[in-house]
Computed example of a mutant assay.
Amino acid sequence: MITGDVEVTEGMMAQSDRQSAEDPLPSVLWGLDPVHGVFAKLYIQDILQLKNSLHVPGIFFYGTHPISRVDILGTVVQRQEKEKFYAFGVDDGTGVISCVYWKKQMPAQVTKTVKVSDPVFAAQISRMLELPHLYRSFYDKTFRIPKDGCEADEQGALILSLQSKIKQFLAQNQVKNFYQRELETIDSLSCIARHDREGQCDQDSALSPAETLTQEPISSPCVSRQIHATFQEAVSALQEEGVIFQKVTGPNELYLVTDEEKQLHNVALEIIRDDCTQPKYIERGCPFRHILNCVRQCYGAGVTEATLQRLLDMLECGSQIVSTMDRFYTAC
């Protein structure tokens, strides 16, 4: 199995009709779309169906999003060596794509290929959990132009960076719950929110394991409104992603980390195990909306759809439940 960051070319595409009547987004605005500047993690079947730009070679569209580079993970099913490159086919379960790896990489070729040793399928499970969220939150949403142009784009990038670092902090420290004001006392997070232009905050540095939510508040009398607002935006984005949730909604209420809240896991699993034996659910399984309503009644009204979807994806990856059809689940 390999993972790789690759540039998209017409040779990788399926031979079906890929032309679009017109580019869905003017090229001068592509830089405002955060999907354009990254290696997009897409299913191979969707990469094969990307529509190529009518005006700019090397640019393809997934919906309204301009794509030039993709990140794939799959099993090598074909391999052929040529004088200047290796050609191989990669299968991710949704399709097979042809890739080329040049023996002598040029500076302009940003491609990277890594062999993945994954005996317990950890990389595959992580990918299975991540992709549905990316599709729901970014790829399948229509890109809308920010009202404030570049300033809004810069602020959006800052929030995305803080969102990513908070997620990393929660995972590294196995945080089970927190208040937002506690996050604002963590130096490695607050410096991102301050957007230190002098470079004193290294956003790419690893978070210290010693930093926990029990440390004393920073010495300043209060956190600035701007920093607080940036944290609020990042925390809200994590809620939309389903990474965190609140039992009782409110600006000052406790946030719970979905992956660490075992009581919620047990409640959802017990509901599915009990209800999938009922006559009306025994054939197709329990529908998502039914599970959500029961979880809210038994556990807490603040559980969101995104939180439950992330939880169900985890339970399915752990072979505790299985989806019988779109958003219908039964116990294993």
Results as ranks from 00 to 15, higher is better:
Lys247Trp: 04
Ser188Tyr: 02
Leu48Arg: 14
Arg284Ala: 07
Gln174Met: 14
Ala331Tyr: 08
Ala40Cys: 08
Leu183Ile: 10
Ile47Tyr: 01
Asp17Tyr: 10
His265Met: 13
Arg69Pro: 04
Lys41Gln: 12
Ala152Phe: 03
Leu269Ser: 13
Asp187Arg: 11
Val116His: 13
Asn173Ala: 10
Ile272Arg: 11
Asn173Asp: 07
Glu260Tyr: 06
Leu264Phe: 03
Val223Ala: 08
Val96Gly: 06
Gln80Glu: 09
Gly300Ser: 03
Leu183Asn: 04
Glu81Lys: 08
Ile272Cys: 06
Pro287Cys: 01
Asp17Thr: 09
Ile47Ala: 11
Gly63Leu: 05
Glu240Phe: 00
Cys201Asn: 04
Ala157Glu: 15
Gln174Tyr: 12
Ile2His: 09
Gln180Cys: 12
Phe169Cys: 12
Arg310Cys: 09
Cys99Leu: 15
Leu213Thr: 01
Val295Gln: 01
Ser98Thr: 06
Phe60Lys: 02
Asn252Tyr: 12
Ser161Gly: 12
Phe85Cys: 07
Ile97Val: 15
Lys115Gln: 15
Glu130Arg: 01
Ile67Thr: 04
Met12Trp: 05
Ala40Thr: 04
Leu269Asn: 07
His55Ile: 09
Ile2Glu: 06
Ser188Gly: 01
Pro221Arg: 06
Ala237His: 05
Arg194Ser: 04
Lys84Phe: 06
Ile244Val: 14
Gln278Asp: 14
